[in-house]
Simulated assay, not measured.
Amino acid sequence: MADGDMRSGRCGACGGGEVRWGEYVAQAGLRRPGAGKFGARKPVFDAYICVACGNTQLHLRLDAQMSSFIRGKLDRIWPQRGKG
């Protein structure tokens, strides 16, 4: 897990140690920004919420079918080279 990953129980924004976990079910489905709905997909996310500052992280529960769906529908963001 990367620094700032709230799955460790610590908020990456404020450093608080009271992170709560729940589920978030997307009702509208996945889409490109500004595009219409892509169908009846209802992805489930693990939601991590800092009760001190409200910072929230969503982590999609991926299986092979959802990964394939995402690859076929959403644009890829390529890693950027570090500045230095």
Results as ranks from 00 to 15, higher is better:
G9C: 02
G17T: 12
I77N: 06
L60R: 11
Y24S: 06
L58K: 02
V44P: 00
E18L: 04
K83I: 15
Q27C: 05
Q27Y: 12
G34F: 03
R31P: 08
F69A: 09
A47Y: 01
S8E: 08
G15V: 03
C50A: 08
I49E: 15
D5K: 09
P79L: 11
G54T: 14
I77Q: 09
I49N: 10
R7I: 00
C11Q: 12
P33Q: 09
V25E: 05
P43I: 04
K73C: 02
P33Y: 06
R7H: 05
C14H: 06
R76V: 04
R61M: 05
E23M: 02
G22R: 02
M66C: 03
K83W: 04
D46F: 01
G84F: 07
P33G: 07
L74F: 09
D75S: 09
G72Y: 03
L62T: 00
C11H: 01
G82L: 15
P79I: 04
P79F: 09
F45G: 08
A28H: 09
Q27W: 10
S67R: 13
L74S: 12
K37F: 03
L58P: 06
A2E: 10
A52C: 12
I70A: 06
P79E: 07
R32K: 13
E23D: 14
D3W: 10
H59F: 14
A52Y: 07
D5M: 11
R71M: 03
W78R: 13
I49M: 08
S68R: 11
R32V: 11
G16V: 07
K83V: 15
W78M: 07
G17A: 02
R81N: 13
R31F: 04
G36S: 13
R20V: 04
G9K: 05
G34V: 12
L74A: 07
G15T: 05
G36H: 09
I77E: 14
V19L: 07
D3C: 05
A52H: 15
K42T: 12
D5F: 05
Q80E: 15
C14N: 01
V51A: 08
Q80I: 05
E18N: 12
M6R: 02
A40E: 13
N55V: 00
W78S: 12
A13T: 14
R81I: 11
R41A: 04
Q27R: 15
C50T: 08
P79T: 08
Q65E: 12
I70W: 00
F69L: 09
G16K: 03
K83H: 12
Q80A: 14
G16L: 04
R76D: 01
S67W: 00
P33T: 11
P43D: 02
G82S: 13
R76K: 10
C11N: 08
D75P: 10
G39C: 05
C14A: 06
C14W: 01
S68L: 04
R20P: 00
Q65H: 13
R76W: 11
C14E: 06
G54S: 13
G17D: 14
L60F: 06
I77F: 00
H59C: 00
H59M: 10
M1D: 10
G9S: 04
K42E: 09
M1N: 03
A52S: 14
M1L: 04
S67Y: 02
G34D: 09
A13C: 08
